[in-house]
Amino acid sequence: MLRIRCPWCGERDEVEFRYRGDATKLRPAGDADLAAFAAYLYERDNPLGWHVEWWLHVAGCRQLLKLVRHTLSHEIHAVLAPSDEVSLPTAEARR
């Protein structure tokens, strides 16, 4: 089970959050074509390693968080605000 350190609420159980997917996918401009929207909605990497993802703290502060999580070890490298820049760790995850 993940324990997510919410910047507003402190460390909380995973069940309080709703996973909202890949946070690196940016919605295309409103007038973009079908292909751009299809890529935004459907094309996903499945990395073994660090993944940047949205989690909404629905049972807490209802803030959207940007997590950097390791898909194998589940280590959470950072919990950020939506507008924060992400730098992926260079080192491999701790086990």
Binding site: R20, R27, W54, L56, V58, R62, L64, P82, S83
Partner: peptide, 13 residues
């Protein structure tokens, strides 16, 4: 509500 909150905090910040 979640749908609105998500878009308000990500796409339409």
């Amino acid at each position: 509500l979640e749908h609105l909150e998500f878009h308000l905090q990500s796409v339409w910040r």
